[in-house]
């Protein structure tokens, strides 16, 4: 669950950024300068934490703070499927992983990722219900959601799209097919 920890760290970084921004504004800096100052502070903090924890992959890291890469939320409870997502996407995207629908709703609200890849069959809350909740909330309605299932039964696609999902994917998919799908939602260089 280290990736969930990563998401928590991102949240912590966001909170820290907001706090630093408020402090810089209180110092009387113009908004743009205050934001630059706060980003620099949090960047330095992230690097310091990463060093303290013994590696770049631990805790708050500069890439997370800078959000240089688009964030994709992976909602999948099966490790083998997560392996495929990681191997296919981690080179170009910041991946945050959760294993159930309730956590997915929380993370979408917290992170507003560029894309959600969500299995339909999930513990606690299935992907269809999570999608309906997120699409029914003005704050998260615009986050694209692709629902994924291992067994395309008749009517699954229609049910998925009726929930408000932006697309539907059947496992097993090819890594190149997954990359193409992701690029439709997150164009290169975007």
């Amino acid at each position: 669950m280290s990736d969930v920890g990563g998401a928590t760290s991102s949240l912590a970084a966001c909170r820290e950024l907001v706090a630093r921004l408020a402090a810089a504004l209180e110092q009387g800096l113009p908004e743009a300068a205050a934001l630059d100052q706060a980003l620099a502070d949090v960047h330095a903090l992230g690097a310091e934490l990463a060093r303290a924890r013994g590696g770049a992959s631990a805790g708050v890291t500069a890439p997370e703070v800078e959000a240089a890469r688009p964030v994709i939320l992976i909602v999948e409870d099966q490790e083998d499927n997560r392996v495929i997502y990681r191997r296919t996407l981690r080179k170009h995207y910041e991946l945050v992983e959760v294993e159930d629908g309730e956590s997915a709703v929380e993370q979408v609200r917290a992170l507003l990722p560029r894309l959600v890849l969500m299995d339909i069959s999930l513990p606690l809350m299935d992907g269809l219900e999570a999608t309906r909740l997120l699409k029914g909330d003005a704050a998260t309605a615009k986050v694209p959601i692709v629902l994924v299932t291992a067994h395309a039964m008749k009517g699954n696609r229609e049910e998925a799209l009726a929930s408000g999902a932006d697309d539907y994917l059947t496992k097993p998919f090819s890594p190149s097919g997954l990359r193409e799908l992701v690029q439709r939602f997150i164009p290169a260089g975007d």
């Binding site: 490790e79 083998d80 392996v83 495929i84 191997r87 296919t88 981690r90 080179k91 090819s174 890594p175 190149s176």
Partner: peptide
């Protein structure tokens, strides 16, 4: 599958071996 996955991240070990173990 091995070619597609390794093509993307050549330094991360054999994805197929990982999937077989799982």
């Amino acid at each position: 599958l091995r070619e597609e996955l390794q093509d993307d991240d050549p330094d991360s070990g054999d994805a197929i071996a990982e999937l077989m173990g799982l």
